[in-house]
Design a protein around this nucleic acid. Structure first.
Lengths: 218, 218
DNA sequence: AAAGTGAGAATGAACGTTCACTCTTTCACA
DNA sequence: TGTGAAAGAGTGAACGTTCATTCTCACTTT
C-alpha cells in the first residue's frame, strides 16, 4: 500500500523528553541563579544541579545566554499571570487590589524570589535582550491594568490619570521585592497595611484642584 | 635661601598621591560597573579606564572585591547624604519631602545611576559583605528619617506608625530607580505628581477609625 | 642607594563551548 | 518475532579564551 512509511505516524508529543529536560535545566539554573547570580554560576554547576552532563545541556540550549533569557521569560510570565487574575476578580477593583497586597507582600517575602527578581532587573540594565523581555512584560501588565482600571473607574479619569496610577501601583509592588533585600527584618504586616492605605488613597476621590489632573466636580 | 628643601614641609595629606589614585580607580570602576555590572567588567578594563596598569591597581586595592565594596560604600554614602539634608530643611517636613520628589525622580532618571543602584542591590542579594553595607546604610537612613518625623509630627504617632511610614517612603524612593529600568519611557512629571500626592496622603490626618485614613472632605 | 611609583608579561585557575565517543531506543524489513 | 542500522540521549575530557592575581623589572624621587 504505502511503500514509503517514513512518515513518523504520530509521535506521542512533539518531543516529550525534550520539554522535560528543558524544564530540568531551567529549574536547576533558577536555583543556581538565585544563589549566585547569572554570571556567578557556571554551566558545570547547572549541569550538576540538573543531574546531567554539561555537554548535554547544549542539546537543548544554544548556550548560557539562552538559559538566562529563558529563565527571565519564565519568571516574568509567572509574575504576569498572577496579576492577570485581577481581570476575573474585578467586582470592586480597588478591593481586589487591596486583597492582592497581602499576597504580594508575602510572595516578595521569599527573599530568594526577590533576589532573582533583582538579578533580572539588574541584567536588564545592561543586557539589551533581557531589557526587551522585561520591558515587554511590564508593558503587557500595565496595559492590562490600565484597561481594567479605565473600565471600572467610576470617576471620569483621563488616560493620563489612569497611566499615572498604574505606574504608581507597579512601583509599589515591585518596590516590595526591593525592600525585602535592603531591609530583611522589615515588619510585613505593617508594610502591607500601609500599602493598602496608600492604594486606597490613590483611588480615592481627590480633594485638591491643582497639579494632579482630577475631575473638578468637587 | 633654603638650601634644604627636601623636607616635605607640610604634606598636604597623609598620602596625597594614594588618595587620588584610589579615586581614579573608583571613578573608572564606577563607570565600568554601570555599563557591564560588577562581574561583567575586568580588571583590565578598569585599568584602561583609570589610565594605569592592571598590576598597579593592586597597590591600592587588595583585589576586585575591595573595589566593589568601596564603590558600594561610596555610592551609599552619596545617596545617604542627600537624604540627610532633610534635617536642615525641616521647616515643614512633609513639604520638604514633597520638594525632594522632583529631585529624586530626576536623579533616578539618570538610568545609568539607576542601573548601578540595581547592581548594588542585586549584589547584596548574594554577597554578604555588600548586604551588610547596604542594610547598614538603609538603617542609618531610616533611623534618621524616623527621628525627624517623630519630632516634627503634629499628630501623636506611635513609633510603629512612624516606622511604617518611613518604610513606605523608602519603598517609593527606591522604587523610582527600579521603574526607570523597567519602564524607561515613563513620564516623569506624571509620576512625580502622583508620588507627591501619595506622600501627602501618607501624612494626612486620619479620618477613619480603622487603618485606612483619607481626607473625606469632598 | 634606598624607597616609592609605575608598567606589563607570566601564571594558573576557571569558564563556556565543542567534540569524539558510548549507550539506548526505534523501527523497517526479513 | 528477531535483526541491524540509524537516530537519539547522554557523557566527560579537551580546547581556547579570559580573568584575577603575582612577579619582575624599570624609572623617578629623595
Amino acid at each position: 500500500m504505502h511503500p514509503l512509511p517514513e512518515k513518523p505516524a504520530d509521535p506521542p508529543a512533539v518531543r516529550p523528553k525534550a520539554a522535560q529536560r528543558r524544564r530540568q535545566v531551567l529549574d536547576a539554573a533558577s536555583r543556581c541563579f538565585r544563589l549566585h547570580g547569572f554570571h556567578g554560576c557556571s554551566m558545570a554547576q547547572i549541569a550538576t544541579g540538573s543531574g546531567m552532563s554539561v555537554g548535554h545541556i547544549y542539546r537543548y540550549f544554544s548556550g548560557k545566554d539562552e538559559i538566562i533569557t529563558a529563565i527571565v521569560q519564565r519568571n516574568l510570565e509567572e509574575v504576569t499571570s498572577h496579576f492577570l487574575e485581577l481581570e476575573r476578580a474585578s467586582g470592586n477593583l480597588v478591593q481586589a487590589l487591596v486583597d492582592k497586597v497581602d499576597e504580594g507582600v508575602s510572595k516578595a517575602a521569599d527573599s530568594e524570589r526577590a533576589a532573582l527578581m533583582l538579578e533580572v532587573w539588574a541584567e536588564a540594565g545592561r543586557n539589551p535582550e533581557v531589557a526587551m523581555s522585561v520591558q515587554a512584560a511590564d508593558r503587557t501588565l500595565r496595559d492590562h491594568l490600565a484597561r481594567v482600571l479605565l473600565r471600572a473607574s467610576a470617576q471620569g479619569w483621563s488616560e493620563g490619570d489612569v497611566e499615572a496610577r498604574v505606574e504608581m501601583l507597579a512601583l509599589i509592588f515591585e518596590g516590595i521585592s526591593l525592600r525585602m533585600i535592603v531591609h530583611p527584618e522589615l515588619e510585613q504586616g505593617a508594610l502591607a497595611a500601609m500599602i493598602r492605605r496608600t492604594i486606597e488613597a490613590l483611588f480615592a476621590p481627590s480633594t485638591r484642584r491643582d497639579e494632579v489632573s482630577l475631575p473638578a466636580n468637587c
